[in-house]
Design a protein around this nucleic acid. Structure first.
Lengths: 140, 140
DNA sequence: ACTTAGTTTAGAACTATTATAAAGTAGATA
DNA sequence: TATCTACTTTATAATAGTTCTAAACTAAGT
């Protein structure tokens, strides 16, 4: 592969350290996803559209799916589902909470919600994580 | 429609009071869903399979979808989504919480979880409900 | 440069769901 | 009870999101 701008080196290393060959497509997708100040939420279709819009040579749909799955398996993305039955991905992988406002999703930092009481895990199980969804409606 | 066993009258009234004509199919589906001690969770496909298994004259897929949507709109069912992108429905419509254990869903009564701290709704919005998902994993 | 295992790609296939429009039926009316 | 009509059911087609397939391509080790 042609040598890339050094500023992508961090993503190349990130991919390689997860056993993912840093192909052109994977590096570009990773850069697009992770090189930003704020974390964000997206569907694969949204990601594909916004990245391919500015490209002459398009990245294929299958590659977007493959790469997003690979990044999720490697622990760089978190998946969640809304009632419209499409997968959303979150670049914020730390345990946190969400406002759901008619299909719009807003992060809530973990420390904004604390519990007074939580149930025990059933026998033989343990708690992996606890996530809260606060559904919003308009104030009228 | 042929007169039905009186024990279904409650479901007939329930449907009629929501503006839903109590057809044979709707009454049977409602009876199947709501005439049980414990609330439960299902997908439309699961509902269809388990009801049609014991029937000579099958109810169509479209009717299962139509009826489940109608019951949801009428407020008798609650919808939620797992990461597999299929809609699950819950006959427990009261606000409550869930354990998610590898695709298996277990109800948590509302009073089993209480909060010490919760964020404000964004300006112009108010909180419709707050639901917690506790993800489980095996204890090894 | 050569090799090969891993990757990308277009397109087919699949799954859950929604739309269509023709046939059937509940319930009102006479 | 017979008739009428709007609502409902049904089989089927269509759609959306996603996964599969297998041929072409490429990163990276030799």
């Amino acid at each position: 592969m042609q040598k890339m701008n050094n500023k992508n080196q961090i993503f190349i290393d990130k991919l390689r350290s997860s056993g993912l060959r840093p192909t052109k497509q994977r590096v570009e997708i990773s850069t697009f996803l992770f090189k930003r100040k704020k974390t964000f939420h997206f569907t694969v279709e949204e990601l594909k559209n916004s990245m391919n819009l500015k490209r002459s040579k398009k990245i294929s749909t299958a590659t977007f799916y493959n790469t997003v799955h690979a990044l999720k398996s490697a622990g760089y993305l978190k998946e969640f589902s809304l009632e419209n039955n499409t997968s959303y991905y979150d670049t914020n992988i730390s345990s946190h909470h969400h406002f759901f406002d008619n299909g719009k999703v807003i992060d809530i930092k973990s420390d904004k919600i604390t519990f007074k009481k939580l149930p025990e895990a059933p026998k033989g199980k343990k708690i992996k994580n606890v996530e809260v969804v606060i559904r919003l409606e308009n104030n009228n």
